[in-house]
Design a protein around this nucleic acid. Structure first.
Lengths: 215, 215
DNA sequence: TAGATTGTTAATCGATTAACAATC
DNA sequence: TAGATTGTTAATCGATTAACAATC
């Protein structure tokens, strides 16, 4: 209950396995060995075995794993076989992109409503999702027992919006704003750090040889 | 040259330090101690000192670090004081969001042109950036010595587009498609994994108590 | 059976934390 | 000087890799 005990790196690798397995399934392959997955994904084969074991997957000596079985098990382990309802706040271009993004339902989340400060946006529909005005946020979140908030507002508004979410019963925030949110203990925050990701790319590029960035 | 020797976790934390320091600067504070940053950011104080040392920051006993100096040093270390030119391919809603996203120039990249399969999009301007047709990609990338490609096409088109990028001299790809790209050795790929991030959030939520996702 | 593959236990490696010396 | 803070060296911890036993 308190500690997950699943190593974070394992948790990060499982979606990659899943995605590759889905490709195998689409290609009609129904058996796969840990060694093969390791080879393709650039992970040590023992690592793959340990990760799969963590997720509760079991294979058979000699034949390996059944692709369909692996997919189902990982899906269950990541809770991708059911969906948590989520509210999104901030229908700017990033929020809009997420509302149009395909596949969240397959990754365990369903955006059931979106909200924006700008009342002109209220009433619009983006993708399948209706945009509502902010003043409906708390009552709706409470009534629908929403646990997940997606935060795509500008950096300046992020903290206040996060506070509103927490005040409305939300317990997990997926934060796209480049701000370290200050929230009560027990609230789960996952920061999607665009700039960090870009920094990693650029540093590896400049480390990898002649490649100093241009002035 | 070959190996960066900067631990990846350190590289991931530096942008967080930077962002917090920028806030301090804006608030007019000009000195800060490693212990204080550690406290606020939830990192061990020794960790902060090591990370800062890695980036080449130096403080003074008793007084701590100068905020402005830290910012300048980290900026330089992450190459955020200069920009690499980048081409973006895939002007869907995610690509559009990135083109509108503020602050990439401050994070070391400048999107100088965007490209899309759909010729109807050619000629449009999104934010400051002109959208061009795909057939101009290779010649322009070569002529401008573009090293960085941003990949925001649908999953199905990702591999082919990445191949085109590599064939046009691009050496680093920031990949937003949920696909493991298969590319020649030496090409740097940084995957921005939306689904992985979401999976982490949902798993922590369901680990943290009564909170099984709703059916 | 022999061989391939799983799954586990032990060894290694690297990052984090602790202890402490240096210094303004 | 005394005390706060830096920066470094040593100890711990956890994840990765290696070795090997189990099994279809």
């Amino acid at each position: 209950m308190l500690v997950s005990s699943v190593p974070l790196p394992t948790l990060r690798r499982l979606p990659r396995y899943y995605q590759y397995l889905a490709r195998l399934r689409n290609a009609g392959q129904d058996q796969v060995s840990a060694a093969h997955m390791a080879e393709v994904l650039g992970v040590h084969h023992t690592q793959v075995r340990k990760d799969l074991a963590m997720a509760g997957c079991q294979g058979r000596p000699k034949t390996g794993h059944k692709v369909a079985e692996l997919i189902a098990t990982i899906e269950g382990f990541l809770h991708w076989d059911s969906q948590s309802d989520a509210f999104l706040v901030g229908v700017g271009s990033l929020g809009t992109a997420l509302l149009n993004y395909p596949g969240f339902d397959k990754a365990g989340a369903r955006i059931v409503a979106a909200f924006d400060q700008d009342i002109n946006k209220a009433g619009r529909k983006i993708g399948e999702t209706l945009v509502l005005s902010m003043d409906k946020f708390t009552s709706l979140a409470e009534r629908m027992h929403i646990a997940v908030g997606i935060l795509t507002v500008p950096a300046e508004a992020a903290q206040a919006t996060a506070d509103l979410m927490v005040g409305s019963g939300i317990r997990a925030i997926w934060n796209f704003a480049p701000v370290a949110l200050d929230l009560p203990k027990g609230i789960i925050v996952e920061n999607l750090e665009l700039f960090t990701s870009l920094a990693l790319l650029l540093r590896r590029l400049s480390d990898s040889g002649s490649a100093a960035p241009e002035s």
